[in-house]
């Protein structure tokens, strides 16, 4: 009897393994997407510590530029949404954009095992989405960037979605600025309608530019950094800044 049960179990196990190996998911051809984010200041590559001309003629340079991307997705022409990552991705430009050569290389994120096919929209969120923003660093293992307390601001009960820091001067005035964003209200979603083809076994490359001049507005309407060098507290100001942030991103 025991022998019979053992044989039956073995057959069932083998059948389960066979069925499992024929699942649709494993048969689906997949490819990869390589997203490279390049910091820019207007048309120039962004080099940390290098001075650029601000809208008002002031000299501005950056010492830190980092942010989270989340809800990164592709959309097929039929409207099917494919999520590229279940987690957030942390983008740190300051450790990569320290000279022109490296700024031109940019910061690269790899997304693998994407269903091969044609897509017509690339979308993502800037910051930590509300469902994760209810958590705190102690909820994540240290392999996850959300475990690092430096990305969390207890005073807000929120992750810090982005940090943009640097210095601006015009001879008469000099300010260090620190623009940090957070709160669910500041979470911005962005999308680009673009044909993207993922081919089986291949890596499709996508380049996104992040213009640090447009981050502060445009010539007709820009943030007065001398007046507001810090946006740790002001939610309204933060929303304005994040709207600029959203429009400072462009697909090459």
């Amino acid at each position: 009897m025991i022998q019979f049960m053992g044989k039956t179990f073995s057959w069932l196990l083998a059948l389960a393994i066979f069925i499992g190996s024929c699942s649709e998911k494993e048969d689906t051809p997949v490819g990869n997407l390589e997203l490279t984010i390049k910091g820019r200041f207007g048309q120039s590559p962004l080099v940390m510590g290098k001075e650029y001309d601000f809208f008002d003629g002031s000299k501005i340079y950056f010492t830190r530029s980092e942010f989270f991307l989340s809800r990164i997705k592709l959309r097929t022409p039929s409207g099917k949404i494919v999520s590229l990552s279940s987690n957030v991705r942390f983008v740190n430009l300051q450790d990569h954009h320290f000279n022109v050569e490296n700024a031109e290389k940019g910061f690269t994120l790899i997304f693998d095992k994407i269903e091969a096919g044609n897509y017509d929209r690339f979308s993502f969120g800037i910051g930590v989405p509300p469902e994760l923003n209810t958590k705190t660093p102690k909820d994540f293992p240290t392999t996850n960037p959300l475990s690092d307390g430096i990305h969390y601001w207890s005073g807000w009960n929120s992750y810090i979605f982005s940090k943009t820091e640097g210095s601006i001067s015009n001879g008469a005035q000099h300010e260090l600025f620190a623009y940090h964003s957070g709160f669910n209200d500041a979470y911005e979603e962005q999308y680009f309608d673009q044909n993207i083809v993922i081919e089986e076994g291949k890596t499709t490359k996508l380049v996104m530019e992040f213009d640090h001049k447009a981050l502060f507005g445009d010539l007709s309407n820009y943030i007065d950094i001398y007046k507001d060098p810090v946006i740790h507290e002001g939610k309204d100001f933060m929303s304005v800044f994040m709207a600029y942030f959203r429009s400072a991103l462009r697909i090459q």
């Binding site: 660093p137 690092d148 307390g149 430096i150 990305h151 969390y152 601001w153």
Partner: peptide, 25 residues
């Protein structure tokens, strides 16, 4: 942590961040 905006921001939490009150940066 700059939680009370009526008080000055001592700015400590930017680098010595909870929950470890440290930073890898």
């Amino acid at each position: 942590f700059n939680t009370d905006l009526s008080l000055p921001d001592a700015q400590c939490g930017h680098c010595h961040a909870a929950p470890t009150f440290a930073s890898s940066d």
